[in-house]
């Protein structure tokens, strides 16, 4: 996948702050630096640093409770880390609010589906366009002229997403009535409708059957290739991770234990141990 990165494992230290890929042709979209986050006594994240390059698919993996979801929550401003900083599009900050993250082009999906259950598929996807809609409340009251044109313009984009995800037949169905796999797809649609620069996917394929997984993989690759969207995804299915991602970060007990290409990470002894449940220390 990542042709330029020579998998010369020897050159990389165990914590994988990969000196081997110091290739300046890559543009960094997001960098997290020494992020530490704890809840009471639980250290969800401990001095974690890594970067996400523009246009890549970056996987975050690790055993249960490793801090993967917490990492995404830090990136999109849900959790505020006690230590560390985030640099996104060149601006460094200690924390973000979810709204600021959204307005700067970060969209995401959740591990447990977070759709608006009472709304139709179309309305859910239209909410993804919310930030881009500018007409004030008085125009909305009239629903006429500029307000209607705006609504139609965004409806076209939403329909484009619906076509892309092949969910035309359920356009007007309340999402609460949809099966799990389709709900995951609609949630991806809502994130895509925002036309994000950085898309965070928390276990997009969890609980899906093989066919649904294949569809989802195809969508993720297409989004990345057609729209050039940078994607960070958490996934437990190793096969999927190896196929999809350009680079992988491995977390365990809140610490980063490896970082590099899929092949490199798979060969890493620390990673193997973590997955086989060999306790560290």
């Amino acid at each position: 996948m990542n042709e330029t990165a020579a998998p010369s494992n020897e050159e990389t230290n165990k914590n994988g702050s990969s000196d081997l890929e110091k290739n300046t042709t890559f543009e960094t979209l997001l960098e997290v630096h020494n992020i530490s986050l704890s809840f009471g006594g639980v250290h969800a994240l401990d001095e974690v640093s890594f970067d996400i390059r523009k246009g890549e698919i970056r996987a975050i993996i690790g055993p249960n409770g490793a801090g993967k979801s917490s990492m995404l929550n830090v990136i999109n401003g849900f959790y505020h880390p006690q230590k560390g900083s985030i640099t996104y599009k060149g601006n460094e900050r200690k924390k973000m609010s979810p709204q600021v993250a959204a307005s700067q082009g970060i969209a995401r999906t959740f591990q447990n589906i977070a759709l608006f259950r009472g709304m139709t598929t179309l309305d859910n996807i239209m909410t993804g366009r919310n930030l881009k809609m500018k007409k004030g409340i008085f125009w909305q009251m009239l629903h006429w002229g500029p307000a209607r044109n705006e609504e139609i313009h965004h409806r076209e984009i939403a329909e484009h997403v619906i076509d892309f995800l092949e969910i035309e037949p359920i356009r007007k169905t309340p999402v609460g009535r949809l099966p799990y796999g389709l709900q995951k797809r609609v949630e991806l649609g809502r994130a895509l409708a925002a036309q994000p620069d950085l898309l965070l996917l928390d276990e997009p394929m969890a609980g899906m059957n093989v066919e649904e997984k294949e569809d989802m993989c195809r969508f993720i690759i297409d989004v990345n290739e057609e729209f050039g969207t940078t994607i960070a995804l958490i996934e437990h299915d190793m096969g999927v991770v190896m196929d999809l991602s350009d680079r992988v970060v491995v977390l365990n007990y809140g610490k980063k234990i490896a970082d590099g290409t899929p092949d490199f990470v798979r060969a890493d002894q620390g990673v193997v141990d973590a997955y086989l449940g060999v306790s560290e220390k």
């Binding site: 709204q99 959204a102 977070a114 759709l115 259950r117 309305d123 909410t127 993804g128 919310n130």
Partner: peptide, 17 residues
Amino acid sequence: RSWMAVRDMDIAAEIIG
């Protein structure tokens, strides 16, 4: 749509801004 989003799940509403 914003009202319904907040009604159905305010956390998810926040992440879409």
